[in-house]
Structures are given as C-alpha cells and as structure tokens.
C-alpha cells in the first residue's frame, strides 16, 4: 500500500533510473547530474519558499556551506567523504536555524526576508573568497580518487544514480511533510500568519523547522556538486547563480508542489540545452530562454507547469463528469 502522493515520485524516479539502459551518451549524464543537483537544491528552497511561503533569495548560502564543509573536512582533515556528507548536512541545518532565528524572530517576511538571505549568501561569498581555510580565490580541489568510500565514481551513470537517490529521498521527505500536521501548519503560515496563530500554530517554531530542513537539503546538493566536479570556489559555492536556480526551478515547475522543483529543473535546462544546440555558442542564450520561460509562466500559469496540468485536468474531468 502506497500512501497519498508517492506513486508519481516512484514513477518519475524509475524513469530516470532506467535511462542508462537506453542512453549511453556522457553529455546526457552530465546534463542529468547537474539537473538533479539543482533539483535537490531547489527542493530545499521549495520546502521553505514554496510550501512555507518564505521566499529566499540566498539559498546559495546553504549550497556553499554544504560544499565547503564537505571539501574542507576532506582536504584539510582527511575525514571520510560520507562522514563529511553527514557533517555538511548538519551544518546546513544549523545555518538555517541561525539565519531563521535571526530573521524570523525579528518578524522579517516577504522581500525583507529575501534581502536578508541574499545578504548572508553574499557575506559568505566574500568571506570564502578571502579566507585561508576555503582556499581563498583559488578555491579547493578534491583529490581524484574514485571509489565508493570517497563518494567518487568514474562512471557517470553511477553518479547519476547516486544523485537520483538523494533527489528521491528529498521527494519522499517533502511528500511526507505535505501529508503531515507540520505540512498543514507550514501552509497555514504561508497563507495567513495571524489566522495560523489563532489556531494554535507556533509560527516561529514552524518556520525554524522549515528553514533548517531546507538548509540541510540544499547543503546536500552542495556536497553532490563538489563530489562530482571535485572543485569548488566562492563564486560557485555562494554565487547568485545557484540561488536563482534554486528558486527558478520550483517557480517554473510548480511552487509548493512536491515534484515542482524536479520538473522545473528538467524543463529549464532541457530548453536551455535545446536552444544551445540550435543557436550554437551564443553566450548567455540559455539564460535568455530562462527569462522568457519565467515570464510566460508568471503570466499564464502562475502556479507553474504542474499547477497548469492540474488545472487542465480538473477542467477536463469536470466537463467529462458533468
């Protein structure tokens, strides 16, 4: 017996998991790994921003904290990659708790909260660029040493399956939250804080839980990134690009919906790749496509692709039924 909402998750995961059987192109796996990493980071954003309505513009901070924690532990201290992963996830959760405590306790919402998260991410980027520990502007290189123990895989499909496993876990966790009391509270906070309070929802605690879970998920994405590319610098780790990717994917795919970030990430980057192959190497052409897609979605399907599908399905079924 599968609970509510899990069937689509399992199906989507299976489809992606089976691609190595039919596709053997390395560029496809490169593409899919990147999309999955972004989908994982975006799922973290979706939990806080989509379901909880606290729009962050600085999820790079969690991504970077995850990436740097994993790299520093491995390069400087020789810690095992998997233990580093756990530490990085914990660091992301802790960072979420701290930022959440500082901003939510002060009652920051909406664009003010977004600005504070952006400021934190930028602050960390500047610090990482200057500090010895993070390798300064040169960044950190992980030693190439493929093997399960090091969480490095020379086979791209294997790494894709690892990333997929992470995304699957994040989807299941999100679905579990959506089905739970905590999820209902989170949505209530998004919709109307005062009404939520009146119904006994401890708004601050709910937000803090959400932001630390969110930070943990996005930090895990940062770890995957560094395990795949074996290199990190401040511009990648704390750069604005990942903050934007993390919020664009759920917005396009369907914010607040469990599969939104994954669908959004695939759509955006899929379109980006297609344009690149048509337009050749015009620099920034994929970003222009992102912009057009975003405008179209906001104008015509404000609840994203999944929202649009659901609306059409509702209309169809009500017509068919009546």
């Amino acid at each position: 017996m599968i609970g509510r909402g899990y069937l689509p998750i399992i199906l989507v995961t299976l489809v992606i998991a089976l691609t190595p059987l039919v596709i053997s192109s390395n560029s496809f796996f490169n593409f899919t790994v990147l999309v999955l990493i972004i989908a994982l980071a975006a799922q973290g954003w979706n939990l806080l921003g989509g379901i909880g309505g606290q729009t962050s513009f600085g999820h790079a901070m969690f991504f970077g904290i995850g990436a740097y924690t994993a790299s520093i532990l491995q390069t400087h201290l020789g810690v095992n990659a998997w233990i580093s992963l756990v530490a990085a996830i914990a660091a992301g959760a802790l960072a979420g708790l701290i930022v959440g405590f500082l901003s939510f306790r002060a009652g920051l919402r909406g664009s003010y909260f977004a600005l504070v998260t952006l400021a934190f991410a930028e602050l960390l980027r500047v610090l990482a660029n200057a500090s010895e520990l993070t390798g300064g502007a040169a960044g950190l290189l992980l030693k190439l040493d493929p093997g399960f123990a090091n969480m490095q895989f020379s086979s791209r499909p294997t790494f894709m399956l690892l990333a997929l496993a992470f995304v699957f876990v994040s989807l299941v966790i999100t679905q579990k939250i959506v089905n739970s009391r905590f999820g209902a509270h989170l949505v209530a906070v998004r919709e109307n804080e005062d009404a939520a309070k009146a119904l006994g929802v401890d708004v601050l605690t709910v937000k803090l839980k959400a932001i630390s879970l969110s930070g943990a998920m996005t930090a895990a994405a940062g770890v995957l990134y560094v395990q795949y590319f074996l290199y990190i610098d401040s511009g990648i780790a704390f750069g604005i690009w990942i903050s934007i990717e993390a919020l664009l994917a759920p917005m396009i795919g369907g914010r607040g919906m469990v599969l939104g970030p994954l669908i959004g990430a695939f759509t955006l980057h899929g379109l980006g790749e297609v344009t690149k192959s048509f337009a050749g190497r015009v620099p920034g052409i994929d970003l222009m496509v992102f912009a057009v897609v975003l405008i179209v979605v906001i104008a015509f399907a404000s609840s994203g692709i999944l929202g649009l599908i659901r609306k059409l399905a509702d209309r169809f079924s009500s017509k068919g039924g009546a």
Binding site: V187, A188, R190, E191, N192, D194, A195, A198
Partner: peptide, 11 residues
C-alpha cells in the same frame, strides 16, 4: 474568529 475574515485563501 476575526472580524475581517482571514481564510487560508489558497486552500
């Protein structure tokens, strides 16, 4: 209850 009703409009 609130004088100005406060439904969770999206639900």
């Amino acid at each position: 209850t609130f004088q100005i009703v406060q439904p969770f409009a999206g639900l």
